[in-house]
Amino acid sequence: MKVALIYASTTGNTEAMANAMNEALASAGAEVVFSTADSADAESVAASDVILLGSPAMGDEVLEDTMEEFYTGIEGALSGKKVGLFGSYDWGDGQWLRDWEDRARNAGANVSESLMVHLTPEADDLAKCQDWAKAFLA
């Protein structure tokens, strides 16, 4: 199974989540397209069976700029795709992730429950990241 795992990170928290997911997916035998949003190849992502996208909450609970730009570019290719969204936040209540879920659903994606971590992921958070990512392989 081909899984695209694309993320943006400003403090390293969302990157830590993505690294844990990448490790879990690779150990489970998935073919992983792993990249930051600013260097991801939209065609490879669109050709994947599963698309996992991560962004920290920025400003007034919005996506990080490079993820916003990347996501807008692939939004039209998400119809019928299995999509998972994740990220880290400092303040607020996760509105950025709920808004992103709505956007993905409106694009026709099959969106599962998102995953968010407050600030720096601890060991138990990273284990949740791994389990969450592996659940997409079922």
Rank of each mutant, 00 (worst) to 15 (best):
R98V: 15
E122L: 11
E101W: 00
L52V: 07
D93Q: 15
S9L: 00
D38R: 05
C129G: 00
R105K: 15
S27T: 09
T10G: 11
R103E: 13
V83S: 04
A4Y: 00
G87W: 01
A40F: 06
A16T: 10
E75F: 05
S112H: 15
A109W: 00
L126N: 00
A77M: 13
H118N: 13
T72M: 14
M21G: 05
A46R: 13
L53D: 07
A40R: 05
T72A: 15
V62C: 10
E75M: 10
T10N: 06
E64V: 08
N110C: 06
S112A: 15
L52N: 09
T120Q: 13
H118A: 08
L126R: 04
Y7C: 04
D49R: 06
D124N: 06
T10M: 08
G29N: 03
L137Y: 01
D38S: 09
E15P: 04
D38F: 03
M1S: 10
E43I: 08
K81V: 02
L119W: 07
S44F: 08
D90A: 15
A40C: 05
Q95N: 13
T120D: 11
L25A: 01
A46Y: 07
S44K: 15
A133Q: 00
A127D: 11
Y71R: 06
A16Y: 04
S114R: 09
A57W: 14
D99K: 14
S35M: 06
A16Q: 10
Q130M: 10
S9Q: 01
G94N: 11
A26L: 14
S48E: 11
A28E: 09
S9C: 06
N19M: 12
D93T: 15
G59H: 09
D102S: 12
E15L: 03
L97V: 12
E75R: 11
G29K: 04
N22L: 08
N19V: 11
V33K: 08
E113D: 14
V32H: 05
S88L: 08
L25Q: 07
E31P: 00
A16W: 01
F34L: 08
L63I: 04
Y7N: 02
E101N: 10
E101F: 02
V3W: 01
W132D: 02
A109S: 04
E31T: 08
E122N: 07
L115W: 07
K134M: 03
E113W: 06
T72C: 08
G76W: 01
S112R: 14
W91C: 05
A24E: 04
K82C: 09
D93E: 15
A26S: 15
V117H: 02
A42Y: 04
A40E: 05
A104Y: 02
R98C: 10
G12F: 05
M116P: 06
L137S: 00
A133L: 01
G29Q: 05
S9D: 01
E15K: 10
R103I: 07
A18F: 03
A104P: 06
E15V: 02
E61M: 07
L25C: 04
F86T: 06
M67S: 03
L85S: 10
E61F: 08
E64D: 14
A30C: 02
A135R: 02
E31S: 12
V62E: 15
M21P: 03
Y89K: 08
K134H: 01
D41L: 01
C129T: 03
F86E: 13
D131M: 07
L52A: 07
D124T: 08
G59W: 09
D102T: 15
T72F: 09
S114I: 04
T10Y: 06
T36N: 11
N19Q: 12
T11M: 02
G73L: 09
L63F: 01
